[in-house]
Write a protein that binds this DNA or RNA. Structure first.
Lengths: 170, 170
DNA sequence: CAATACATGATATGAAATAACATGACAAGT
DNA sequence: ACTTGTCATGTTATTTCATATCATGTATTG
């Protein structure tokens, strides 16, 4: 058995922000932007890392580490968990990929290059994931944190619900 | 080995919102409130479920399912994963306990009875967890969701950082 | 070219979660 | 009382996610 999360409605052009778009261009642009940042910052976008990033950009939805691993194996890369996790660590550390805690899975960043604290909308039916901006530290939470003396370093914001497509079908 | 998450600074009186408080009273009140809700709503707070809830209230921090399981075993309950997961499911479903996605762990709700969409502050050093309110659907994220046609059903908001205690020590 | 950082490969294991099936406890309907 | 249905629990096995560790390789860079 291959470890793809769910049957998953495979469409040629997947949603970003749940919208149809020119996917090929979108992948290429993102990749180029990551390459640029790597070379200016002296980061090493090695073959495994690049491959993982490409896969995630291509899919445009959250993939589990083992789904990624399967694909790496298929392409002749190492096929043991650490291979995938190390590549993912690198990509996450540098903001090229985000981890979706709710799903224990990973998505390529939709706005690479921009510093951001991302928020995600996750469709519980088709697993599509869209990235948005958030500013949680600015709102009620920020106030609570200041009141409590808690220093926020990082936030996870994930909304679960139904994407437009799935809403329609229901 | 027993599966307690980390060495964990055991203190007699643990933080709620990172503050000292009369823990015994706090546990009792919470438990009473849950019992009340169960009886008015016809929910069955069985021995396992009650025990798990007590443990979480007592600890006042996030415990993993297997740490819970260890304690259940010690008390003579079933010791297989489903036992813990089922009790946790019940408690989470009914809002008596929350899952911290970031930690794959569980905490007792600090405001049982009030309907709420909780937000958490998690200390990355000592694993203390404080619960606050959030209204993520009201802010930037809500706007993005409406724009995208995404229907939010539930949100996860978790802030990671340093609690007052750990900040001091640093 | 040697020293050193960093990246990968491979083995093993730990930790989190669920599937599937059997048993028990209890209330409602006949 | 007995059967049926529902819900909770127990148990086995397996899947999925993640990391520790050690050995090996490959770039820089001094």
């Amino acid at each position: 058995m291959t470890s793809d999360a769910r049957p998953a409605p495979v469409k040629d052009s997947a949603p970003v922000g749940f919208q149809e778009h020119d996917h090929q261009t979108c992948v290429e642009t993102a990749l180029a932007s990551v390459e640029a940042r790597c070379s200016t910052e002296g980061l090493r976008l090695t073959p495994v890392r690049r491959k993982v990033l490409e896969m995630l950009l291509q899919e445009h939805r959250a993939l589990g580490a083992y789904a990624i691993l399967d694909r790496l194996r298929a392409e002749g890369f190492g096929s043991q968990p650490p291979v995938a996790y190390r590549a993912l660590d690198f990509l996450v550390q540098n903001g090229f990929v985000h981890k979706i805690e709710r799903l224990n899975a990973f998505v390529a960043c939709s706005h690479p290059g921009q510093s951001h604290s991302p928020a995600f909308m996750i469709c519980r039916k088709c697993d599509a994931v869209a990235e948005a901006q958030s500013a949680p530290a600015k709102g009620v939470l920020g106030a609570a944190a200041r009141a409590a003396g808690f220093e926020i370093e990082r936030t996870v914001v994930e909304a679960e619900g139904l994407c437009p497509d799935c809403t329609e079908k229901a």
